[in-house]
Design a protein around this nucleic acid. Sequence first.
DNA 1: ACATTCGTTGACACA
DNA 2: ATGTGTCAACGAATG
Length: 530
Amino acid sequence: MKHSCIHWFRKGLRLHDNPALLAAMKDCSELYPIFILDPWFPKNMQVSVNRWRFLVESLKDLDESLKKLKSRLFVVRGHPAEVFPGLFKAWKVTRLTFEVDTEPYSKQRDAEVVRLAAAHGVQVIQKVSHTLYDTDRVIAENNGKVPLTYRQLQAVLAGLGPPKQPVLAPTLETMKDCCTPGRDNRDPKYEIPTLEELGQDPKEAGPCLYPGGESEALSRLDFHMKRMTWVCNFKKPDTEPNTLSPSTTVLSPYVKFGCLSVRTFWWKLTEIYRGKKHSSPPVSLHGQLLWREFFYTAGAGIPNFNRMEGNPICVQVDWDDNPEYVKAWKEGRTGYPFIDAIMTQLRTEGWIHHLARHAVACFLTRGDLWVSWEEGQKVFEELLLDADWSLNAGNWQWLSASAFFHQFFRVYSPVAFGKKTDKSGAYIKKYLPILRKFPAEYIYEPWKAPRSMQEQAGCIIGRDYPRPIVEHEALSKRNIMRMKAAYAQRSHSKAAQVEKESTKKGGKRKLPAGPSVVELLTKKPKAKSS
DNA sequence: ACATTCGTTGACACA
DNA sequence: ATGTGTCAACGAATG
């Protein structure tokens, strides 16, 4: 039987290593590649103009690549569950293919679409290709528990063997029995949206340092993979947060949208490593992809992963509700130049180094402002080109010492941390030109400069650039105590939880240690001899 | 049961 | 320059 197929692009905006797309082309006479502009996203999350632009560019690139295969991309407007029945009928669809997406909204959306497809007699094929491994499989292999440490994940993956090899991109040969009706009829209703249609003002976009799309992704990968020595020596903690151009690859936005396949990236690295001395996980480039896998698995398996409440691995903290602090942080007006420079780079360019994320995340949460990590998560969701649901939630919990990382007495200094790798403050001067005339001695703490020097620099602190909104030295010490209290509370409630469990079971009450979060998660009573 | 070690990336003083 | 100890002391894994 010859099929009429829809391939539904969501993430995975690429032709290379796209097994669901290949499945659509098999025994297919009519192929309809679509992307759905789902109003759920702009309604439920802020998206900056920079990130919209990245998406639009990625869609354009995809359309161009599909045209070379004598096909095209149809961009459909509406809720997936509402538009699919019409498409199924209009195109006499017999098969729908898409890539597995593990995020909660996506799972729910896809389950609904699968039901609809069944009701219309449409076969559905889903393929895992956004992650290195099938996250469900990883959890199953770990006895149904989400691996909560990196080493644990590594142990599970060791049992599964290396990730699958990427599949080849389709060619004209793959497409020879297959056509896309209406590919030359550019009906505006299926056109790629402009930023204006998306309610965005292109004039507000920053410089386009990281254009979206698979073509750009592959050439960027190629560029960095040619630096073989650099690749082999790569150690993430040794890369610098405040260089004038990125010290890492900035492939993250491309991996997030699936312009670049994580498996293609993985196997390219394997090829480069072969026979050479090279760094290893967690700090190597392979290690970075495993961190992504780590958080994807956690996001797929832990309920309410992007919230504190109802999240079984998240320490419950009495964060302050402080909109003024959030606003000052977001807008780069904290009075700490290192923090404000990073937030400015984030807003204008859409990417900041991982360690820069650490610095500003610690500052917003447990370090200084004592604001919930969920507020920071929202801002990163809006402004980062690589904003990725699982990674964003996981890293915010990490940095706020709410989960995964617990050494809350280790606090980043908004003054000292940046100095280690940029003594002169060149990074600060690039993003906060108002401070450019301060000497290195005062660039991280301009409020300490004598008045005469401020006048000479043409920047009076408190007038032209804000005074620090908090005093880090005193506040960070108080916050450590608050974290300590939150952890003590947590041990207490964990003990209570065990009390409940063992009472229910009627077993012996022996519990000072309490269950691990894994046990709380799976609700398995603690196995013990009575 | 209990102690010990480890955990991708702290700051600071001191050698 | 790099390495070590201190600060005060977390949870998870390991023995």
